[in-house]
Design a protein around this nucleic acid. Structure first.
Length: 288
DNA sequence: ACTCAGGTATTAC
DNA sequence: GTAATACCTGAG
């Protein structure tokens, strides 16, 4: 772990409020000075922004430049995605104008799997609290500027917790799911290394669905937020709501099938539907 | 007291 | 395959 700093100039399509509040991450917190501090696999990172300059500083286990580029998907030019999506219709254009600074993060696979298992039928403050408590219980502590931070536990670290330990941390009925999934990964029934290397999005989904607590929506979130699978399209209540309102027009949105939504997304957004989903989700949640 | 929140697993047609 | 239902928890 080494303290490092990096300043990038002329960073396009990068708004911290958009990135950290579009539903993809749970461990970034806004500070009083407007910066964000996040705990990621590699350590603790603070991000602050002044006009087009973005400053990264933190205590990390690898080179801050490569970490920042990978984590914030900086090798991708989001203007290219925006140009493509803007052509689709005025709805898409409006949501891109609203969430113009969104970027899809490239988060740690293991942490993302467990985080989204926890997200099932849950709300964001509770999800964040649960993840924080789990990390504090068995994750590695890092001290930075006099503050203690706890990394998300590794597979081995998390496997130390029993089902009742997990229940005591407030996971609720998700306790068994977290335990079972941890066991499956620990015993290599599902291999994280293999998942990282797989090509086909469908194959990855099939593999992820073997994990307890991972259904279609959670699998899609994992693929989009940690494996950069832009062709996955997580369908939650907000996406169902916005897709029905804008494109499907069913009187009762709860009756709109996932299949209809997915087909609509395929048709309209193609292989970058995951990015479209993020703009729509962020816009819908703030405006519906 | 009661509803709701980034769904999934289980059970029953 | 598709529909109905239970499920921890805590905030509003």
């Amino acid at each position: 772990m080494k303290e490092q700093k990096l300043i990038l100039e002329n960073v396009d399509c990068f708004e911290m409020d958009h990135i950290f509040d579009c539903g993809q991450c749970f461990r970034w917190n806004k500070q009083e000075d407007g910066s964000y501090v996040g705990i990621i696999k590699n350590g603790v990172l603070r991000v602050s922004k002044l006009k087009n300059k973005v400053a990264f500083e933190g205590i990390l286990d690898e080179d801050i430049h490569s970490i920042a580029y990978k984590y914030f998907d900086l090798e991708n030019d989001y203007n290219v995605f925006k140009r493509q999506l803007n052509c689709i219709d005025s709805n898409m254009k409006k949501s891109i104008e609203f969430g113009y600074g969104i970027r899809i993060l490239n988060q740690d696979l293991w942490e993302t799997i467990i985080s989204f298992i926890i997200s099932a039928n849950n709300n964001i403050p509770r999800i964040k609290g649960i993840i924080e408590r789990i990390s504090k219980k068995v994750g590695k502590m890092i001290e930075w500027n006099g503050v203690e931070y706890y990394l998300f536990p590794t597979v081995q670290e998390l496997s130390k917790l029993s089902v009742s330990d997990l229940r005591a941390l407030g996971t609720g009925f998700r306790d068994k799911r977290i335990f079972n999934t941890t066991q499956m990964v620990l015993n290599n029934v599902v291999s994280l290394e293999k998942l990282e290397k797989m090509n086909s999005t469908e194959d990855i989904r099939e593999e992820l669905l073997k994990l307890d607590g991972v259904g279609e929506k959670v699998a899609d979130c994992i693929m989009l937020f940690s494996l950069k699978r832009f062709d996955s399209f997580p369908i939650d209540v907000w996406v169902r709501r916005v897709m029905n309102t804008l494109y499907i027009h069913n009187e009762d949105e709860t009756r709109v099938s996932k299949k209809d939504i997915k087909e609509t997304a395929d048709r309209l957004f193609g292989n970058i539907q995951g990015i479209a989903q993020q703009y729509l989700f962020y816009w819908a949640r703030s405006n519906f």
